[in-house]
């Protein structure tokens, strides 16, 4: 469905303590999103995962590389074709509070894209209303209750569902969910994750799930692929469930270590460790994670690691010294008081 090859994006650096010049946010990233597949990107804030999502939805340009939608390069399309193509890739934003226009009701928010669609397909006005109700039902909301409401009258979870419903009005092929649950109460997150999973498996909409919470990725698609992104590069990739259970790159391992342990129900993994140091910009001639890596050796600071496979072909990593470690918490079985 979507294939991305060697994507590069550079931003001009702004003030602050970033050095003058340019910041390379995405450094040659390649991946593919299969039709109705679930792909997850994980990484810290600032690793470039959001930029990739914005490029795919056409909200951001890219400097080099190739994006193929159904085998056709985005660069080869005419502006109109490109717009129609990009409409099929919808972004679900992180902040459901900003993603809905506060001065418009849910009905008005859904009507806008539908009216456009109706005009093109010469549909009637009742079609617009029927379709609004349909997409709201699809995301698990009661249209009669939600349609006349303004965004501020809805909970965070309901808002995010409305945002998904709005994206569904254009019959998308791909949903890019950028941290779609991180601003929602933990108690309501699972509902949204299940919704994305259902859209993927039942409606055949591919989902690119961008997150910093590895646990959430399992609920969107445990058999999909997982890409771990560090400073604009993919450092490890594999099948979601497999990668979570047996990561070999120290960065993936530290991300997995950071997932809170439910003490009493789980015991922390034996090799759990959390890097204390803040995000530091790495060197392009060495492993970018070397400065924060607990296991780094001389070679890590002098030689850039290449993409290597680990065991199966789909499990790849960029580490000089990959090693499986037990970092994920394990459930405590039957240890009752």
């Amino acid at each position: 469905m979507i294939e991305v090859k060697n994507l590069v994006k550079t931003f001009p650096a702004q003030g602050g303590f970033l050095k003058q010049g340019e910041v390379q946010a995405v450094k040659g990233v390649s991946f593919s999103i299969p039709a109705s597949g679930a792909v997850t990107f994980i990484g810290e804030s600032g690793c470039g995962k959001t930029t990739i999502g914005r490029i795919l939805t056409g909200l951001e340009s890219y400097d080099s590389g190739e994006i193929l939608y159904n085998g056709m390069s985005l660069a080869d399309l005419s502006p109109t074709e490109r717009r129609d193509r990009l409409r099929k890739v919808q972004l679900i934003q992180q902040d459901p509070y900003a993603a809905l226009n506060p001065s418009r009701t849910v009905a008005q928010s859904l009507t806008a894209p539908l009216a456009w669609e109706a005009k093109r397909q010469r549909r009637s006005k009742t079609w617009i209303e029927d379709r609004s109700r349909e997409v709201l039902t699809q995301v698990g909301l009661n249209p009669d209750v939600v349609l006349p409401k303004y965004p501020h009258m809805l909970s965070g979870g309901q808002r995010q569902r409305v945002v998904v419903a709005r994206a569904l009005t254009v019959n998308p092929d791909v949903l890019v969910a950028d941290e779609a649950v991180s601003m929602i109460d933990v108690s309501l997150r699972l509902g949204i994750l299940h919704l994305l999973h259902r859209l993927c498996t039942e409606e055949g909409i591919a989902v690119l799930f961008i997150t910093h919470d590895v646990a959430a990725a399992r609920y969107v698609g445990s058999d999909g692929s997982l890409y771990v992104i560090y400073q604009g590069e993919i450092v490890e990739q594999g099948r979601t469930e497999e990668l979570i259970q047996s990561p070999v790159h120290p960065y993936t391992q530290s991300l997995l270590s950071a997932v809170p342990v439910l003490r009493g129900l789980e015991r922390p993994g034996e090799d759990r460790y959390i890097p204390r140091a803040e995000f530091t910009s790495g060197d392009s001639t060495a492993c970018r994670f070397a400065l924060r890596c607990r296991f780094s050796q001389e070679r890590c600071r002098t030689e850039k690691p290449l993409v290597t496979t680990w065991g199966k072909d789909h499990h790849r990593h960029t580490c000089h010294f990959p090693a499986p470690r037990r970092v994920v918490a394990e459930p405590i079985e039957n240890e009752r008081l």
Partner: peptide, 20 residues
Amino acid sequence: GFIEAARGMGLPWYHIVFRE
């Protein structure tokens, strides 16, 4: 966010400016 979403939906400029 909602303006970006409207752009992502391919809505015309006059809709975004006057309606959103």
